[in-house]
Amino acid sequence: MNATKSIKNDSYTDVMLKRQSVRKFQPDVKIPRDELMELLKEATTSPSACNLQSWHFVVCDDDTGKKKAHSVVMPFNFPQTDTCSAIIFVLGDTQSYLKYRDVWNKMCDEGRITPEKRDEVFQTFLPLYEHGDRDFLVKDSMIDASMVSMQLLLAARAHGYEANPLAGYDAAKIAPTFGLDDKRYVPVMAIAIGKPAETPIQSIRYDVADLTDFA
């Protein structure tokens, strides 16, 4: 699918400033898997620490997947989980450094960086992760996964859908339920996507002046 054809909304104001969380979707709406892959591809343009891209996705878009999703979320999240077109679990990958050389070698092969720059990266950033303790790797992957999650929310709206981010689930069950290594993958967020079946509450934000200090 051509991404430019599937994008319905390319306005910064509409996509970001008018995004709202929807908790009830039209259950008969199906998002093609190739479009779901486009959403994820667009989301992964997100920045990440040292370009490590420490994220992983589990997409539940059929009855089997949705039943698994239903089994791990809290009851107050059943409305969006059960009616959405797809719910995507975003996990941090604490071992993404195992693929790190592939990315930078490809960049070097394509002439984006010099071999010297590639080797500099391998000698500075890579050892931080190869020898990092679990606490460091978990925190780093959760930052990356959080950033890609926000981009996924915006990508969904750009494609003409609405979404709902949620963390109300049994975190300990996520990886095992989807056949993943729970030592490697850390659940960060789930995002329900679809066509809204309700008008969401018009929420307000705190005054930014109360949240900000200039140092």
Rank of each mutant, 00 (worst) to 15 (best):
M1D: 00
A3H: 03
K5Y: 02
K5M: 04
S6E: 10
I7G: 00
K8R: 12
K8Y: 00
K8V: 07
N9C: 12
D10I: 06
S11M: 07
D14S: 15
V15W: 06
R19G: 02
Q20R: 15
V22H: 04
V22E: 05
R23L: 03
R23C: 02
F25T: 02
Q26R: 13
K30V: 15
I31A: 02
P32F: 06
P32K: 08
D34L: 03
D34Y: 00
E38G: 00
L39F: 06
L40H: 06
A43P: 05
A43N: 01
T44Q: 12
T44P: 01
T45C: 04
P47R: 11
S48H: 08
S48R: 05
A49K: 07
S54P: 02
S54F: 01
H56Y: 15
F57H: 08
D61G: 03
T64Q: 12
G65K: 09
S71C: 05
M74F: 14
M74E: 14
N77P: 13
F78T: 05
P79M: 03
T81H: 07
T83S: 15
C84N: 01
C84Q: 03
C84D: 08
I87V: 14
I87D: 07
V90D: 01
V90E: 04
S96Q: 14
S96I: 02
Y97W: 15
Y97I: 09
K99W: 08
Y100L: 09
V103R: 10
V103L: 15
V103W: 10
K106N: 12
K106H: 03
G111W: 11
T114G: 04
T114Q: 01
E116C: 09
K117D: 06
D119M: 12
E120P: 07
Q123P: 00
Q123H: 14
Q123K: 14
F125Y: 14
L128I: 12
Y129C: 02
H131K: 15
R134M: 15
L137S: 02
L137T: 09
V138W: 03
K139C: 09
M142R: 11
I143D: 04
A145M: 09
S146F: 01
M147Q: 13
V148P: 03
M150P: 05
L154H: 09
A155D: 04
A155F: 05
A156V: 04
R157S: 03
A158V: 02
G160R: 04
Y161A: 06
A163G: 05
N164S: 13
N164F: 08
Y169H: 02
Y169L: 13
Y169Q: 06
D170N: 12
D170W: 09
K173L: 15
P176W: 13
T177C: 11
T177Y: 08
F178G: 10
L180P: 05
D181A: 11
D182Y: 04
R184F: 06
V188I: 11
V188D: 06
M189I: 12
A190F: 04
I191V: 15
A192C: 11
I193T: 08
I193W: 00
P196E: 13
E198F: 05
T199S: 10
I201G: 03
Y206G: 07
D207N: 14
A209P: 06
A209Y: 05
D210A: 13
L211F: 11
F214G: 00
F214C: 00
A215P: 14
A215I: 14
